[in-house]
Simulated scan of single mutants.
Amino acid sequence: MTLARPHFLPTEAQALELVAQPLTREAFAAFGDVIESGQRPPLSINAGMTARHHDLAHVDLGPEGGRALVNIFETQPYALPLRVAMLERHPLGSQAFVPMDGSSFLVVVAPAGDTVCVEDVRAFVTDGRQGVNYARGVWHHPLVVTQRVANFVVVDRGGAGHNCDEIHLPDGVRLLVS
């Protein structure tokens, strides 16, 4: 797969401040899935001892094949306001983040594509019991926690092919998240 070199589109505003909105399935739908247990009634399994919250995200391994990787990320906290200088995308598969310790985190995203328009960047804040699954190709900031070191289960694609592109904001453009 040959991809065009990603770039930010110019913006008239030299500084853009994003206020993180509460994360909801509806608001996040263009970027992927919200992973939370309240989406639908659970299935009762294991002789009634377990409630299975089933099929909460579309794990996309891409048309070229690959395998699912299950990882644990230990993430250091950022200070707010966060200055966004870079976004990344995974063109060959989805990437999911689920907090292991109830940590709330910020989600900074932009639509999939070979360009990123600064005005299209969105920010969400989770409630500590929600995870996200970024759809293949969706631009996102690396994991952002603000209160303490936090651990996350991360499910993404392993296998052949280049699966991480980075894009940097041009000089003079400031994107702040609070």
Results as ranks from 00 to 15, higher is better:
Ala15Phe: 06
Leu18Thr: 09
Val19Phe: 09
Val19Ser: 14
Ala20Ile: 04
Ala20Pro: 01
Pro22Thr: 00
Pro22Tyr: 00
Leu23Asn: 07
Thr24Asn: 06
Ala27Val: 00
Phe28Thr: 02
Phe28Arg: 03
Ala29Tyr: 04
Ala30Lys: 13
Gly32Met: 03
Ser37Pro: 09
Gly38Ile: 00
Gly38Tyr: 04
Gln39Asn: 00
Arg40Ala: 03
Pro41Cys: 05
Pro42Leu: 02
Ser44Pro: 02
Ile45Ser: 12
Gly48Leu: 01
Thr50Trp: 03
Ala51Gly: 06
Arg52Ile: 09
His54Leu: 07
His54Thr: 05
Asp55Ala: 14
Asp55Tyr: 11
Asp60Tyr: 02
Gly62His: 06
Glu64Thr: 09
Gly65Trp: 01
Gly65Lys: 03
Arg67Lys: 14
Asn71Lys: 15
Glu74Tyr: 00
Thr75Pro: 09
Thr75Leu: 14
Tyr78Cys: 00
Tyr78Gly: 00
Leu80His: 04
Leu80Asp: 06
Pro81Ile: 08
Leu82His: 15
Arg83Cys: 01
Arg89Ala: 10
Arg89Gly: 09
Ser94Lys: 10
Gln95Val: 01
Ala96Cys: 05
Phe97Asp: 10
Phe97Tyr: 14
Met100Pro: 09
Gly102Ile: 09
Phe105Gly: 07
Val107Pro: 02
Val108Asp: 05
Val108Tyr: 06
Val109His: 06
Ala110Val: 04
Ala110Cys: 07
Pro111Asp: 07
Ala112Leu: 03
Gly113Ser: 13
Gly113Lys: 13
Asp114Val: 12
Asp114Tyr: 11
Thr115Leu: 03
Val116Asp: 01
Cys117Ser: 13
Val118His: 05
Asp120Phe: 02
Val121Asn: 07
Ala123Val: 02
Thr126Val: 05
Asp127Gly: 09
Asp127Phe: 07
Gly128Ile: 12
Gly131Lys: 12
Gly131Ser: 14
Gly131Arg: 12
Gly131His: 14
Asn133Phe: 09
Tyr134Trp: 07
Tyr134His: 11
Trp139Val: 12
His140Pro: 04
Pro142Met: 05
Val144Tyr: 10
Val149Leu: 08
Val149Ile: 12
Asn151Ser: 06
Asn151Gly: 05
Phe152Ala: 11
Phe152Asn: 09
Phe152Met: 11
Val154His: 08
Val154Ser: 08
Asp156Glu: 09
Asp156Ser: 06
Ala160Asn: 03
Ala160Lys: 03
Gly161Leu: 04
Gly161Lys: 08
